[in-house]
Amino acid sequence: MGRARLYPDEPSGPFPSPPSTIEDREGRDIEIRAPGQLTTDLDAVVEMYDQFDPTDRAQGIPPTGEDRIRNWLETIADESVNVIAHHKPNGDVDGDTEVIAHAMLVPDADDPAAIENNSDIEWELAIFVLQDYQQAGIGTHLLKHLLGHASDVGIERVWLTVERWNNPAIALYERVGFEASGTESFEQEMSIRLE
């Protein structure tokens, strides 16, 4: 941790800020919100990861089983920056919305509580979309809103790793401005500089 990563010289943006309601390619209304704290929506997010198909896991996350999922999210909740996509299933007029996707940034710092400026440190990104909502454009919208929200709170440097063979994910990240960085091994490291 804390090792210097390479970032593109040119910043990317601007990106849209949450909250927004978008229509996905299946005609579903998806609300994208940024909770002040992940803990506000923790139960609904745990529920989403509990429904997540383990075959789509990447590099060990999300963990499986409600306890391990909750433990993982609680570990990263305090200092993370989050956007959450909600959908109200059809015919469920009175029901609550369900969380169907989640994207987050986690600070790459030994003592995240001591961060003075979000621009001082690097942030690791991850995004997960529930299987029934994949390939409908939601991931792209959610990713852009996370980067918009990140820019709003002063974050400048964002990185991620993605499995090298995951071409759809790499293409998604490249579309919004991520560039390959760092050494290639099983994981491709990518980074973006925000306006």
Partner: peptide, 14 residues
């Protein structure tokens, strides 16, 4: 483990 909790295997491991 990355800050996110992702397991990362480096180039030597590969």
């Amino acid at each position: 483990l990355s800050p996110m909790g992702k397991i990362q295997l480096g180039p030597i491991t590969e």
